[in-house]
């Protein structure tokens, strides 16, 4: 009789595996990690929207619909709309050359593409001032022809392009390398020309990578601050992007308006994260089946 409870006890599901920590250790580690993330990620995210709506909806709506804010939105969209297609073309060309061919100096080229990531945004802005600024290399010529780049929209576009150059290329290169060249070779043997091969074979195979890179590129293009700040001149309504507009409002102690505009950018960040997660799960599904 006394053996029965003992047997039951030992045959109960044995939850602790050899490759797992004890439950309390797991609990503490999880709690620690989540506390850190709450403090550094969640709290700021909540704070943006809290501060934006602190003075009510009316103030919020007014802040994001005043002419200067609308001009900033327009400029931000314009800069992104120019930078993204250019970087998209660059990314596809670079990935085609790097992933589909073997040539010397390839690894150096890959490092060069990554270069803008390791350059401080402030330095990125500065180098364009050195070239196109009044005292810059092309300054006298530009003034002669009445073209302004620095403290004007072209400068903002250039700075935006610089900081977003690598995004699409570095998504596509590993993806296209992993896919190899056999499908393209098969298409060529079957009589397709280069553009047909790119359009019917390569691009459909990399569409998720393209979208992924574009979304990240867009987030950075719309949110860039340092590089754009150097070349912008902060002219309200003219050379102010959303990110810069936030700074101006904040420095004028117009906190509620600053956070209202900031909340738009935070919303953009959340959409970016959502799309990114969606694409990742799509790709994971595709590769697992």
């Amino acid at each position: 009789m006394t053996t029965i409870p003992l047997l039951q006890a030992s045959s109960a599901p044995h939850k602790i595996l050899v490759t797992q920590e004890s439950p309390w250790a797991r609990w503490i580690l999880t709690l620690l990690a989540l506390s850190f993330l709450s403090l550094f990620l969640l709290l700021p995210l909540v704070a943006v929207f809290f501060e934006a709506l602190k003075k009510g909806w009316d103030v919020y709506i007014a802040a994001i619909t005043e002419p200067d804010a609308l001009a900033a939105i327009q400029l931000t969209l314009t800069a992104a709309a120019i930078a993204i297609p250019l970087n998209l073309a660059f990314g596809i060309a670079a990935a085609w050359a790097i992933a589909k061919f073997e040539f010397r100096g390839k690894s150096i080229l890959i490092s060069l593409i990554d270069l803008p990531f390791s350059v401080s945004p402030v330095v990125a802005g500065l180098i364009y001032v050195l070239i196109f600024g009044l005292q810059g290399w092309m300054g006298p010529w530009l003034r002669e022809h009445d073209i302004s780049i620095i403290f004007a929209v072209p400068g903002i576009v250039l700075a935006t392009i610089f900081v977003t150059v690598p995004f699409i290329a570095r998504e596509l290169i590993p993806l296209m390398q992993a896919q190899g060249t056999e499908e393209e070779e098969a298409a060529i043997i079957l009589g397709a020309n280069g553009w047909q091969t790119l359009w019917y074979i390569t691009l459909p195979n990399i569409k998720w990578g393209l979208l992924y890179g574009t979304i990240l590129c867009n987030a950075r293009a719309m949110g860039e601050f340092g590089a754009v700040s150097v070349v912008s001149g902060h002219i309200r309504g003219l050379t102010n992007t959303l990110s810069l507009h936030v700074e101006i409002l904040y420095n004028e102690y117009n906190s509620a308006a600053a956070f209202a505009v900031a909340s738009l950018l935070a919303l953009l960040a959340l959409i970016t994260l959502a799309l990114k997660t969606f694409i990742e799960s799509r790709v994971a599904q595709k590769t697992s089946r």
């Binding site: 056999e182 499908e183 070779e185 098969a186 298409a187 043997i189 019917y200 074979i201 195979n205």
Partner: peptide, 13 residues
């Protein structure tokens, strides 16, 4: 020429 690749190289899309 018709070429059949070792791993077939069928167009996956």
């Amino acid at each position: 020429v018709g070429f059949v690749f070792q791993h077939y190289a069928l167009f996956r899309n």
